[in-house]
């Protein structure tokens, strides 16, 4: 279970973005039964950089483009991100990376 001193919102997103640590990411991932590998971590840090740089949590399309640009076209595919973060990669990855829920992400 996630440490009680860290406050999450109703959907499991961090309320206070400064609370994020890599250890917390591991806990958040365990809560949704995802085992974090190096492949996950490079996406998590890419997402955190994206948010720091642009102040927005990306939806699927911009996330795919950003991954493609930074990590290569092989990884910049939604199917690849789906295998790492099943369901909705932008939402699940944002949750684990300690970012706000992507807006208007249907």
């Amino acid at each position: 279970m996630t440490d009680n001193t860290v406050v999450l919102d109703e959907e499991g997103y961090l309320l206070n973005l400064q609370d994020w640590t890599p250890e917390l990411a591991n806990q958040l991932a365990q809560d949704v039964e995802v085992e974090l590998t190096d492949a996950h971590w490079e996406i998590i840090y890419l997402l955190r950089d994206f948010y720091t740089e642009f102040e927005v949590s990306p939806a699927m399309r911009p996330l795919v483009k950003a991954v493609s640009k930074k990590l290569g076209a092989e990884k910049g595919r939604s199917i690849y991100l789906m295998t790492l973060f099943p369901g909705s990669p932008p939402k699940l990855a944002a949750k684990i990376a300690g970012l706000p829920k992507p807006a208007n992400c249907l």
């Binding site: 740089e53 642009f54 102040e55 990306p58 399309r61 911009p62 996330l63 640009k69």
Partner: peptide, 15 residues
């Protein structure tokens, strides 16, 4: 408010 200037550089990811 939010720093909207930062978003300008991100627009390319939205085409």
């Amino acid at each position: 408010g939010k720093n909207l200037h930062k978003l300008l550089d991100g627009l390319e990811f939205y085409d």
